[in-house]
Design a protein around this nucleic acid. Sequence first.
DNA 1: CAAGTCCTTTTCGCTATGCGTAAACAATAG
DNA 2: CTATTGTTTACGCATAGCGAAAAGGACTTG
Lengths: 263, 263
Amino acid sequence: MANGDDNSRYFLKSLAKGLNVLQTLAESPNPMALAELSRIVGSNNATVTRICGTLSKLGFVRRDRQRRFHLTPKLLSLGYASMSGLGWRQVAEHYLEELAENTGETVNLSVLQDRELMYLVRINNTGRILPFDLQLGSRLPLHCTSMGKSLLAFADEAELARILKDYEFAPLTNHTITSEEDFRRELHKVRDRGYSLNDEELSYGLRSVSAPIRDLSGRAIAALNIAVPTKRVSLEDMETRLAPLAMETAERIQKALGSMENA
Amino acid sequence: MANGDDNSRYFLKSLAKGLNVLQTLAESPNPMALAELSRIVGSNNATVTRICGTLSKLGFVRRDRQRRFHLTPKLLSLGYASMSGLGWRQVAEHYLEELAENTGETVNLSVLQDRELMYLVRINNTGRILPFDLQLGSRLPLHCTSMGKSLLAFADEAELARILKDYEFAPLTNHTITSEEDFRRELHKVRDRGYSLNDEELSYGLRSVSAPIRDLSGRAIAALNIAVPTKRVSLEDMETRLAPLAMETAERIQKALGSMENA
DNA sequence: CAAGTCCTTTTCGCTATGCGTAAACAATAG
DNA sequence: CTATTGTTTACGCATAGCGAAAAGGACTTG
């Protein structure tokens, strides 16, 4: 019945479903029972039973007394291994540490992942001031973060189009940009200045400056930022003092990366 | 042809193979080409092409110009999500930070994972002295680490038997314990004293003390340790000064854990 | 440049695999 | 004790996924 259009012979559905189950569990804040899980992934629960049985026999998933499924830390090894492939990350980390030391602020690095950004490095200098407790691997929206703006301002047009297609500009504060026109205008500004700002657009009390880390073609492969509490650092201070530091660090990383072989 | 013996109807082979590919890539220090990969996972390369095609369409794997496969950081999100399920980890982390502060040394926490131990927390106080640059999720052998000894000394007999069956006591230094008899003797000693030592058994220049974190039945669910360079801390010092601190911290964590609901 | 090796991709037909429906089983609630 | 909702098992069918082998590339070597 209808192999549709594509290279379907080369796509393993059960593998995709299994990974989808893992992702679903990862995205849910709390463990899930079978029924809920099959509802969300949209499969028959017999199927989900089989998937979870397999995952659990392989040790990626555990079932608690209330028959709910949890991910196990076995997945951690996979996650970390994936980073060691990212040679440039290590290089960047070095410079970020310097930046964190010089500014005394929290410094982050993230990459584009699907339609969000994902943290790859986080150096938290200021004990827990920020309203978010982010870890590596956690994700944030693109439209209301400085790194998101940097990543998109220097993405290629095709990628940008893909992401902005039906993008939902969810308002998280009343500073959040909520329309594509405004956002595109903002991206222009970012391209002009070479850095991007987030002034309480993600969360009240929080500002950040970000600069893109670009490859030789000018495309952003990552973005770094400096995040500060509003009460301690003014917007002007961000622009005059921190923005240049962020850009300078990004440039140094780019230089260092230039001398590496490319994937 | 021969469904063998088991509940085979409930095990999804393609999912298992796919995950096996991911694990294989994770364990390899460098990216792999198709041929090598299919050799290692023991499947037809048509099969591996399909698996990798799927994984890559889903964004878990990337192929570089030389047609070699890499894991992508997309897996990070999964790994970290798996830790947030571990409520006790957070609790433990708090006490470990204290311990690190009090001793000024590097402090770690790990759990049993397959036949190795895996790091879940690492607080590195001493800038890069240690010969290993370990990250969360990385693994070490059990027989030549203090945490490995703690974990096994307080594992239940069945688990211990499973692990020691055909265990390979690879000698990493000339202090490494290399026979099961010696190792079992060592475990007895650990049970008696309540803590375990590693005196240059993993790597020259490195010592550590570890104490188990046990559940109500006495089984170790994790182990913490304090790791030091040999040049700075004597064996005697470890036993008289650090070992008690490690045990005390472990006990405090156990108490704190007692007041949590169990999975 | 032709012959040879090794790697990768695609084709093709078969059958075991994994699917959904539906029935049994379990647990809670009313 | 019947209803309701969640979980597991049974069963038979369709097809998804498999391996063997051919076709297509890339890179050496004579």
